[in-house]
Computed example of a mutant assay.
Amino acid sequence: MVDSKPPANPLFLREEELRQGIELMFYAYRDFTFESDQQLKRYQLGRAHHRALYFIGRHPGQTVGHLLSILKVTKQSISRVLKDLIGQAYVEQKSGARDRRERLLWLTEKGQKLERDLTGRQSQRFARAYRETGAEAVDGFRKVLLGLLDPPERAIVDKRVRGGR
């Protein structure tokens, strides 16, 4: 049986459309991070600290190694960030029960409040955009974001985002 659907329109793959997508991503990221960046400056923290706070809050009790695999940063970089966050009492680190060499991470109450404040602003932006575009666009956006990831990472990240580790 012959498929009667017309072929997909390839115009969205033209160089100009790809460039527009890249440009829109830069603008969206600029505005997505602006308010949080301003707040972070007051605490002498940066985006790396925000990402760590976010993912420690999303996956409490994770190891430093797990956080490294999520953020894809060097041990030296994560060490600096964690030193700041632990030093300012936003994060606490405990040894693992089975393996005392493991360093497990949790947000303190103070860290939970800061993470909620930072992410709350970003959540409002997402909520507005999702309301304005509808469920089909939200599903498409999710697929595009997953598609931007390196292929081996897609299933891992999708599982993490949906609540797995």
Rank of each mutant, 00 (worst) to 15 (best):
D31G: 11
R42T: 12
Q122L: 02
G111C: 07
L82M: 03
A127K: 07
R80D: 02
F32M: 13
I70E: 00
K113C: 08
V91I: 08
F55S: 00
W106R: 13
T63M: 06
K113R: 15
L107Q: 01
G87T: 00
K110M: 09
Q112N: 15
L71W: 03
G57E: 04
I56W: 01
V138K: 01
Y130V: 10
W106D: 07
G65A: 11
Y54C: 07
F26I: 09
H66F: 13
Q76T: 13
A89N: 15
I22N: 07
V73H: 00
Q76S: 15
A135P: 01
R30G: 11
K75G: 15
G46T: 06
G134L: 00
I56C: 00
A48H: 10
S69Y: 03
Q88N: 11
R58K: 15
L149N: 06
F141C: 05
E136G: 04
T119Q: 10
A52F: 04
R100V: 14
L118H: 01
A97H: 09
L148R: 07
L104W: 02
G46F: 05
L82F: 00
R142A: 09
Q112C: 13
R47Y: 04
H66Y: 13
T119S: 10
G61E: 03
R101D: 10
V91H: 01
A129Y: 03
L148A: 06
H66D: 14
P60G: 04
L82K: 02
T119R: 10
L107T: 05
S79W: 11
L105C: 01
Q38N: 11
L71P: 03
Q88T: 06
I22F: 08
G46W: 05
Y90C: 02
I86V: 15
R103G: 00
G65Y: 10
G65E: 11
L107M: 06
